[in-house]
């Protein structure tokens, strides 16, 4: 599949960083504002899909391989399950929030019910893991379908 016109490419180039920054913000603030790993990952993946549709398949195929995306997705899933098992190991229960109320990263307790970016225990880490998984997974679906239809055409 060839790319679209110059107008579409320019608009996609302008819009892609804004969409990506917004999606990463939704992932990073998952424990404070509405959203979370899945929602932010879907936003970032839709920005990547916009780039893939605008610039054409062969351009994207030269930048990123679908094998790497599968590996990133497995890494996200392993991080998620690993955090759950770490809860079993250190907190006594599967999915236990062992990081809260400690002096480690993300371990602070909220003062007067107002949480900030450093609170939440394992929640931000799980958000990052699930966000990585969803970005890689959804973009892998779009990319693989684009490559398959491209090869079928010629």
């Amino acid at each position: 599949m060839k790319g679209m016109s110059t107008i579409v490419k320019t608009i996609a180039n302008i819009g892609f960083p804004i969409i990506t920054i917004y999606g990463l913000y939704v992932i990073a603030h998952g424990h404070l504002t509405p959203g979370g790993g899945f929602q932010g990952g879907a936003i970032v993946a839709s920005g990547l899909a916009l780039l893939a549709v605008a610039h054409g398949t062969s351009w994207v195929e030269s930048k990123v391989k679908e094998h790497d995306l599968s590996m990133l997705e497995s890494l996200g899933a392993l991080g998620f399950i690993g955090l759950a098992f770490l809860g079993l190991l250190m907190g006594g229960a599967f999915f236990s929030n062992f990081l809260v109320d400690t002096s480690m990263l993300f371990g602070a307790i909220p003062v007067d019910g107002a949480a900030n970016i450093n609170t939440g225990g394992t929640l931000p880490l799980m958000n990052f893991a699930v966000g990585l998984k969803v970005i890689a997974g959804l973009f892998a679906i779009v990319l693989v379908m684009a490559i398959a239809t491209n090869k079928e055409e010629d």
């Binding site: 879907a42 899909a49 679906i141």
Partner: peptide, 16 residues
Amino acid sequence: GVGAALTTAILILAIK
């Protein structure tokens, strides 16, 4: 994110 953006992208790829 999923319904308005990703589904549209996949359908447009299929239509092309």
